[in-house]
Design a protein around this nucleic acid. Structure first.
Lengths: 342, 342
DNA sequence: CTGAAAGCGCTTACAG
DNA sequence: CTGAAAGCGCTTACAG
């Protein structure tokens, strides 16, 4: 249990005041080069590291940003999506010398947002997977504390993708390239913007082409994907899932029933966070740049933390359409599109 | 940008001193019930939340624990293993009212351990995936700061599984149940204890049974699994992979070459963090209780943080053997075994 | 029993 | 130009 090395210890060793040590270490020009060298050497010798609590209290900022995941449901938290977000966040935070706090809003208190911010343990937060009517989200925005949402939300600063266009595009792929005549959409959770938008994109595509369509509500889980194909209208020849997890669940069921994918029914998913590459057949999907979204969101967050005012802005990053085997393509037809560039 | 509510503001509103507020809020019996009620109401009214910095500085503890991932290589960090660990850690930390900090040791500085601890931003750390000769690990243990390793390490307090027995058991499954005559082992990274132990377990099983065996060194990545089966000795009829990722990579290659799994070659993996369930055929594997390991490790960490002395102890949690299709079983032969109970 | 000071470790605004 | 005090917000050991 080695004793903590404080700034006073370094000062004592060099024979100066703590203030001098602080200034020397921060490169303040008012300290002579000679003194600075001595201080730096002493600090290194003693293994001095500034106390984050002392510094935070004095500077009035925590030196940390928090990632908040509202739905503690294991579904959200234990998901690869979360890993991609965390990876992107950590990279940028590291560049700003900031710690990363992971906070789940457990229990109905739900005030995870507020607690983290008000206790000043974080200077700002990245929020993921908030429901459209999440009251905490509204409270957070109202509080004026630095926050960036990953996803889409009017009224907040958000970084996401154009779910409508992406969903419309991959749906049209089934119609235009593969000639599907009756498409089923298995929706995501419709209290989340992404679920709503992906549904809308699907509808735009089928309405524009005039083909038949059906709709089943899902909850983004593998079982719900499986359940969605339990009673399939016979004429359905293609399914657009709001995420890959549901596509995986459905694929299992279809295969168990001896229905050939993509020969009898073509499938496409959404997200490409890691699953869709692994199944046989591999699943065609919209590749969502989750890590990049997190990086951009975190950069924006630090801009806010550094005092710059930014009005609510929705940033859309381009997605990639990754056509694998489940739609009938052959891993070759991958092509890029940038909704943001339109 | 709402102004911070300090303890002084609450004190002012009630007409008492900050000390009284502090005591009232912490339930100190020296404060009368009447005063406490008034303080609590005022605190709620103002939305008072204690400053973590002020509290940390005074109490000399951060109120946070850190999860440290030494290898920032995307391979480790973006992995589902990490999610399971984080989930378990977060649950326990939440119960202790502690924040969770995620820290990657980026760059060759490598002193992520020390920085987090010495800056007192965390009261203790959970370390994952440390190499056996990781000098940071040694320094950390020497420092006497609260730390628990997930995995196995003599000299540290660790929570893991009995990799030797688990690897031996699943290898024997291929020999005893499926009659394999020539097994290949694709190792993990051999500078990590898990890689060494799983290799040893494999060797014990093949030596005990006297069947033929081969060995290829892998690095736990999907491509290395693919590469490992590039030049396969013709008589090999079963492969034991040190993790599922490599098994997935190999499965792709074998299928592309028209080699039937499990009919011509049987495969087993290790970990079951999420991949092995998804492939066709599904991959038989050792189910490692990562989240549970993290929970136990974190409980132990808080015991240490609360001042209790614990000598270096290696805790082993029981694993489950999940026999799916890649070994020739039919998803039915799953059976449990508890090396810890022997 | 209770009031109010001291001090955790830091940095910066101030006095000299 | 430089030395040393003040004060961030909290809690507890001390004085009364």
């Amino acid at each position: 249990m080695s004793k903590r090395v404080t700034i006073a210890a370094v000062a004592h060793l060099v024979g100066v005041t703590p203030a001098t040590v602080s200034m020397a270490l921060s490169g303040n020009t008012r300290i002579s080069a000679a003194t600075r060298a001595k201080v730096e050497q002493a600090a290194a010798e003693l293994g001095y590291v500034p106390s984050s609590a002392g510094r935070a209290l004095r500077r009035q900022q925590a030196g940390a940003v928090a990632l908040i995941v509202p739905n503690t449901s294991d579904h959200t938290f234990g998901h690869l999506y979360f890993m991609h977000v965390l990876t992107g966040l950590a990279k940028v935070a590291g560049r700003y010398g900031s710690q990363v706090i992971v906070s789940t809003s457990d229990g109905p208190t739900g005030t995870a947002y507020e607690r983290v911010l008000q206790s000043q343990s974080a200077d700002g937060v990245i929020v993921t997977s908030a429901a459209v009517d999440d009251p905490n989200m509204a409270a957070l925005i109202a509080s004026g504390l630095p926050a960036v949402l990953i996803g889409n939300s009017s009224g907040a600063i958000s970084v996401g993708i154009d779910d409508v266009t992406a969903s419309e595009t991959i749906t049209r792929h089934l119609i235009d390239v593969h000639g599907c005549q009756h498409l089923l959409h298995v929706t995501g959770t419709l209290d989340h913007q992404a679920g709503i938008d992906r549904q809308q994109g699907f509808l735009q595509a089928v309405h524009a082409s005039g083909i038949e369509s059906s709709m089943v509500e899902g909850d983004l889980s593998e079982p719900s994907g499986a359940a969605a194909v339990d009673h399939l209208p016979p004429s359905v020849d293609g399914i657009v899932f709001a995420n890959d997890d549901m596509a995986v669940g459905a694929l299992r069921v279809l295969q168990a029933r001896g229905i050939a994918v993509p020969d009898q029914i073509r499938l496409v998913g959404f997200d490409d966070f890691g699953l869709s590459r692994l199944t046989t057949p591999t699943i065609s999907t919209v590749t969502v740049p989750a890590e990049e979204m997190a990086r951009v969101a975190t950069e924006t967050l630090f801009t806010l933390i550094n005092g710059q005012q930014i009005p609510p802005t929705q940033t859309h990053l381009p997605v990639t359409y990754t056509y694998r085997h489940s739609c009938g393509c052959d891993d070759v037809a991958s092509r890029r599109a940038s909704p943001a560039a339109r």
